[in-house]
Nucleic acid binder design. Structure first.
Lengths: 271, 271
DNA sequence: GTAGCTGTGG
DNA sequence: CCACAGCTAC
């Protein structure tokens, strides 16, 4: 019976957030594995020293100049499982490692631009194709037997209670029916358990992201649940063992000085 | 017998420095009049509120979008003496006010670009013309009788001991012979007293600026004296009354977090 | 609103 | 190295 705690956080530039935001968070939350999205730097620019000072010795980084990028910092050794066909390596939106006997996938799904129309907006087309490739990949895996945990910024808020206003967001990318349908197809293809909704059932609202554009994110509270942690059936008991206490959304991080627009989500697995 | 203390500081963006850099400096040094250069904002963007909180109620601002710009914040009333023909108002490099019976000029002399050649570098030509216009202006004034104080970032280090290496800077704009000659012509034309060199004689080194490009400004100490305070003869006794103690260069300001590349210089006048 | 980019200016 | 501008992206 060991506890493994895994965090996911879109930090919107790791170089800007490491010292002032991520380090204080880690001092409190102490996750064993920290999965980041939108690191916005090349691998060689990742501030490893700062993370070593926080107690992380193992790294797996997929970076790009200035945009996107994902990284995993871990207290436990990471096993390189090789690249998968979900997106080209240079897109720096996906990485896969083995940790503590679990296959861990960290995703930064494309945001998709403004217009929810694949004819006029190639970014939206790219987003939908990306999610289709996730579906195809996990559909081809033996997810009923393999211990797989996938997480990250999926940039889609699937249910009515994952957004502040279902009605007002139906035509806003992140909550359009076509995106929601495709995300649910990934769930079905991989037999995934959506941990957040398992421990915090509908109709309770869940948000992990609040736009920078609001003057006071807390007052207007127009959030969305864009960040997710899913597990395959062999990990379901481990993920739900601690119930609601085992899954935490660190909402106060949104209220810090110079915050990310996303907050960390953390899952304690009891293995 | 009243004391009037006047500061000059090229702050390299007043919006960025007001709260974190200028306010703490003012809390210590308490100058009555604060003359700034390179405010890098329009008049309406000047953070007057922050300066009011520091005790300054009177303002005279010459701003431009993003570049250059000079401003005077004062605890004593400022008299608008009107614009002078030294540079077009929109260039935002010069202002003139009356304060405590003194005519005060605040200058931001053009930097002059890289190549010290008027044929190939129009910025250098502009700088030399600017200094010529200073010479012509003060040459036409009755400087033997009028109480005039001029200060600011003159962007010229006149003497060998105003730079870390006379030899290495002879062809570097700020210390070329043609610039030094023209700056000395302003001194002569206005019968000015160079207060710093009066109270800190040669060969002592004096610097007010250290490049951002040095990794450690203090270790390499490759400074230049680009910021000056000069007075006409009727103010000489007032300016020198306190001797060396009356003229201070706040060098530690260069070592702060996010500093300007210039440090403040302050003169106490005994009137 | 925030943070990258390239380019200019210092 | 630093800070604008104007740009793109989220």
């Amino acid at each position: 019976m060991t506890k493994l705690s895994i965090a996911s956080w879109n930090v919107n530039s790791v170089r800007l957030r490491a010292e002032p935001l991520i380090a204080p968070f880690v001092a409190k939350a102490q996750p064993d594995v920290l999965c980041l999205q939108e690191i916005k730097c090349l691998e060689e620019q990742f501030p490893e020293k700062t993370f070593r000072a926080m107690g992380y010795e193992h790294f797996h980084i997929r970076g790009q100049k200035g945009m996107h990028g994902v990284a995993i910092a871990s207290k436990l050794p990471l096993e390189d499982l090789g690249d998968e066909a979900i997106c080209p390596r240079e897109e720096a939106r996906h990485q896969r490692v083995g940790v503590a006997g679990i296959e861990l996938h960290n995703f930064y799904v494309p945001a998709g631009g403004d217009e929810p129309d694949v004819e006029t907006n190639p970014r939206f087309a790219h987003k939908l194709e990306f999610v289709d490739r996730m579906r195809d990949y996990f559909g081809a895996r033996n997810t009923k037997k393999d211990k797989i945990l996938i997480l990250g910024d999926f940039n889609i808020a699937p249910t009515e209670n994952d957004v502040w206003s279902h009605k007002q967001l139906l035509k806003v990318i992140s909550h359009t029916p076509v995106e929601v349908e495709k995300l649910n197809a990934v769930i079905d293809a991989g037999d995934f358990v959506d941990v957040a909704r398992e421990v915090i059932p509908e109709p309770e609202k869940i948000y992990t992201w609040w736009s920078y554009r609001a003057r006071d994110y807390k007052a207007s509270n127009r959030g969305r649940r864009l960040d997710h942690i899913w597990v395959t059936p062999p990990l379901k008991d481990a993920a739900l063992a601690k119930g609601r206490d085992g899954f935490r959304i660190y909402e106060p991080e949104r209220g810090r000085e110079k915050p990310s627009d996303h907050v960390p989500v953390v899952l304690d697995l009891v293995l």
